[in-house]
């Protein structure tokens, strides 16, 4: 437990008769960027939802920041929710609030900071994620896809979380935007001391920013470790994943 921020052990998840997870084990360490990989339907997003208490596994054990999520009490759960930030796949910005209000909402609700200080913090976060200052007054409907992602990241970072969950952060971004987003996450990890858990399909992200990752498939974790460790795994799904033309190009270039 000493250096693990999240441990998942023997997790079983079923939707009706459909078994999604059958004994998932993995652990995520403090300060690392951890990737969850797998084909569509392999239960990556489901596992992420179980880590942030949106879903409850049928069996097993999920511990986040030392708390057991299956037996956690109300107060501890509230406390835990203040310590993480979540970036949803489509942003999930509140459409009736401006970007600035979206980012400020947790600060307004959970802290007693003066309004002017909140405004300064929010403006700084907005600029930190690379949005122009004018974007603060816009509504989510007026933003482009990339800007929505950035605004949602600013919202996730508002409370200076220890732990950041990203659900496909670079999907729907152009390659340049995706790379900038990756670099931003690296930089923020460096400075804010974040631990990042991300669900991703983006092979580029895996090559460049992810420290360790787990590949899900066949209801289990097929492989877990650093990139070189996973690449040496002979499992056919991993062969497929990294052996496809997209994976090969990247491999030839090296890192």
């Amino acid at each position: 437990m000493s250096n693990a921020i999240i441990t998942v052990s023997d997790v079983v998840t079923r939707f009706g008769t459909n078994v999604v997870h059958d004994g998932i084990n993995l652990s995520i360490r403090w300060g690392e960027i951890y990737g969850l990989l797998g084909g569509s339907g392999s239960g990556k997003s489901t596992l992420l939802k179980e880590m942030i208490m949106l879903l409850r596994p049928q069996a097993g054990d999920v511990r986040v920041l030392g708390q057991d999520l299956l037996t956690i009490g109300r107060d501890h759960a509230a406390d835990l929710r203040h310590k993480w930030g979540v970036l949803f796949q489509a942003g999930a910005l509140y459409s009736s609030l401006t970007v600035e209000e979206n980012v400020a909402i947790k600060l307004r609700e959970y802290t007693d900071l003066p309004v002017t200080l909140i405004r300064d913090i929010v403006r700084m976060k907005i600029s930190m994620v690379g949005l122009p200052e004018q974007a603060a007054a816009l509504y989510p409907a007026e933003l482009s896809g990339g800007m929505v992602k950035r605004a949602a990241l600013a919202r996730a970072l508002a409370m200076d979380p220890k732990l950041l969950f990203l659900d496909e952060p670079t999907s729907g971004l152009d390659p340049i935007g995706a790379e900038a987003f990756d670099n931003l996450i690296l930089e923020l990890r460096e400075i804010l001391g974040l631990t990042v858990v991300m669900v991703t399909h983006d092979l580029d992200s895996i090559w460049t920013i992810v420290d360790r990752f787990a590949v899900l498939g066949e209801q289990k974790v097929i492989a877990e470790g650093t990139l070189t460790e996973v690449l040496n795994n002979p499992h056919p799904i991993i062969r497929q994943f990294f052996g496809g033309s997209r994976g090969r190009i990247r491999r030839r270039d090296g890192k």
């Binding site: 405004r119 300064d120 403006r123 700084m124 976060k125 600029s127 930190m128 200052e133």
Partner: peptide, 13 residues
């Protein structure tokens, strides 16, 4: 870090 992203204008009331 914060200096880099704090603009003068946003500080003015």
């Amino acid at each position: 870090l914060l200096r880099r992203y704090t603009h003068k204008s946003s500080l003015a009331r």
